[in-house]
Amino acid sequence: MIIEKVVTNINQLSKDELNGRHQEKVFLESADLVKRIQRVKTDHGRELGIRLKENRELKAGDILYMDDHNMIVIDVLVDDLLIIRPRNIHEMGTVAHQLGNRHLPAQFEADEMLIQYDYLVEELLRDLDVPFNREERKVTQAFRHIGHSHGA
């Protein structure tokens, strides 16, 4: 089966629309969410080709296929993350500046900054005395590097 578009996201469906439908899952690493063309396998062993016509990224909960009885849904594997919780704007600015200098992508959830685990950043956060935890957690979207060059 070739998937060319995302039907909808599971979060957009009502309980009635979900009720009675069997969910087959495709587990992806967060980095694979940006790939418009890829070969995947569901948790039931079904092989799918994804070739999205529109220029969009996949997200956790995206439904690739749905009929009256079944659906195939994207799920994301856990990432090894540093969860940073600055106590004030000064700590936030310092951390953001340091991570920006390293060109590390970050995501934000509520008052937390999430980055993929890096032992050098872990050491930096300890040196700066900024609160953080290392956790395995699912993210809903891929960590995106923003293109940038220092040259003129």
Results as ranks from 00 to 15, higher is better:
residue 79 D to W: 01
residue 40 V to D: 06
residue 60 A to R: 15
residue 41 K to E: 13
residue 32 D to Q: 13
residue 79 D to C: 10
residue 16 D to I: 07
residue 95 V to I: 14
residue 53 K to G: 03
residue 11 N to T: 08
residue 143 F to V: 02
residue 71 M to L: 10
residue 142 A to G: 05
residue 115 I to C: 04
residue 127 D to T: 00
residue 147 G to W: 12
residue 19 N to L: 11
residue 147 G to F: 14
residue 97 H to Y: 15
residue 31 A to L: 02
residue 60 A to M: 10
residue 31 A to W: 13
residue 5 K to R: 15
residue 57 E to T: 09
residue 42 T to F: 12
residue 41 K to S: 11
residue 9 N to D: 07
residue 3 I to D: 07
residue 97 H to D: 11
residue 129 D to F: 02
residue 76 V to F: 08
residue 76 V to D: 05
residue 93 G to S: 14
residue 110 A to V: 03
residue 40 V to C: 10
residue 46 R to N: 11
residue 95 V to L: 09
residue 140 T to Q: 10
residue 26 V to A: 09
residue 46 R to Q: 14
residue 24 E to D: 07
residue 22 H to Y: 12
residue 11 N to E: 11
residue 108 F to I: 10
residue 19 N to P: 00
residue 39 R to G: 03
residue 11 N to S: 15
residue 86 P to I: 00
residue 118 D to I: 01
residue 64 L to W: 05
residue 137 R to G: 00
residue 72 I to R: 09
residue 64 L to D: 03
residue 26 V to F: 10
residue 66 M to R: 15
residue 126 R to W: 07
residue 63 I to Y: 07
residue 56 R to E: 14
residue 144 R to W: 01
residue 87 R to T: 04
residue 80 D to T: 02
residue 102 R to K: 15
residue 133 N to A: 11
residue 101 N to K: 15
residue 125 L to F: 08
residue 148 H to Y: 14
residue 86 P to D: 00
residue 75 D to F: 04
residue 98 Q to V: 03
residue 103 H to A: 06
residue 86 P to E: 00
residue 93 G to L: 03
residue 33 L to D: 05
residue 112 E to H: 14
residue 125 L to H: 06
residue 6 V to R: 07
residue 81 L to D: 03
residue 15 K to N: 11
residue 32 D to H: 05
residue 110 A to N: 13
residue 40 V to M: 10
residue 71 M to F: 01
residue 98 Q to A: 14
residue 144 R to E: 12
residue 55 N to Y: 05
residue 148 H to M: 08
residue 6 V to L: 02
residue 136 E to A: 05
residue 26 V to D: 07
residue 16 D to Q: 15
residue 78 V to E: 15
